[in-house]
Design a protein around this nucleic acid. Structure first.
Lengths: 161, 161
DNA sequence: GGCATATATTTGCCTTGACAAATATAATTC
DNA sequence: GAATTATATTTGTCAAGGCAAATATATGCC
């Protein structure tokens, strides 16, 4: 455990002000606001979609036909959980499982017409509305910086292993 | 021209690179790395504590004796979930429920000696090690800025309602 | 080819946390 | 001060996601 030189003397001194939430807490709160806001926006448009399901549709649209595993990786979801979400989205008619052409273990997941329509006409608009509102508090340069900082932190974590 | 392309009408389209994760995704990933890293660090020190439990100890230490509701608010946890986490932490001997002196509905939650010791000698050190590692990719000014950006976004969401 | 190992999906099990109902007690209103 | 309303805690129920086992198929090695 090298590198313990900066904040080691004071047990909880990552932040100085008495009430400033820690970085971890802030991130948690921002994320849960995003989730809540997007789900509310989707619901207000009559769409019955969880945030996870919204992500799956988004990635399906971005990636086109992919296997369930690829999709799971793309939305950072466990494989078992993905199976169950796919069940639901298939039941809702937004996507389709077909056999993978080369690999008989795998599936080919893709949006149906309905799914594609919903995504383009409604769901993507909801998320834009929310994210625009959120980012309105930051100017473009700041937005880029925020993105950069988060990516660097993420990288730092990943390099750690 | 049918929008098979990603939905980026953002006023300041920061990210149109093919693989740049969205802000929401980034935040999700950073958070889950933090959680994972802190739990791993705690486990490596022989502490059997979930991230939520770690947060509860942290807040207990910061706030001193408070009611379960106050504690729940401080860690952004549902009241019912808090009851069960308190059960576990009490069983582990890290904290104690006593009756609130003025309000007979409420409790007074506080760290035991063991809890206080564990926190100071081990848990707080774990979290510092992790957060230092994470923030090493950012210089102090950048860390402050990141904090500021997140707080502004959070504020934007909260003002929205 | 035949066998060991790796991967894709599904399913079962478990824990967590949100939400709502139940209970106890406080606070407010009339 | 009795009745209504609000709050603190607990408990039941449910959906979600992580993990591990089961199954099917691929891939690599001899």
């Amino acid at each position: 455990m090298p590198g313990m030189k900066q904040n080691d003397l004071t047990p909880t001194s990552v932040t100085n002000e008495p009430d400033a939430p820690s970085l971890g807490m802030l991130i948690t709160m921002v994320r849960s606001e995003i989730v809540r806001a997007i789900e509310a926006e989707l619901a207000s448009q009559g769409l019955d979609l969880s945030f996870t399901q919204y992500l799956i549709l988004k990635k399906s649209q971005q990636l086109g036909a992919v296997s369930a595993t690829e999709l799971a990786r793309a939305v950072e979801l466990d494989g078992g959980a993905m199976t169950r979400q796919l069940d639901q989205l298939e039941r809702k008619g937004y996507l389709r499982r077909s056999p993978h052409e080369q690999d008989r273990r795998a599936l080919r997941i893709e949006l149906t017409e309905a799914g594609s329509t919903i995504w383009q006409n409604t769901a993507s608009v909801c998320s834009q509305r929310v994210m625009n509102a959120a980012q309105r508090s930051l100017n473009p340069a700041e937005q880029a910086q925020l993105h950069d900082y988060l990516e660097r932190m993420l990288q730092a974590f990943r390099d750690k292993n």
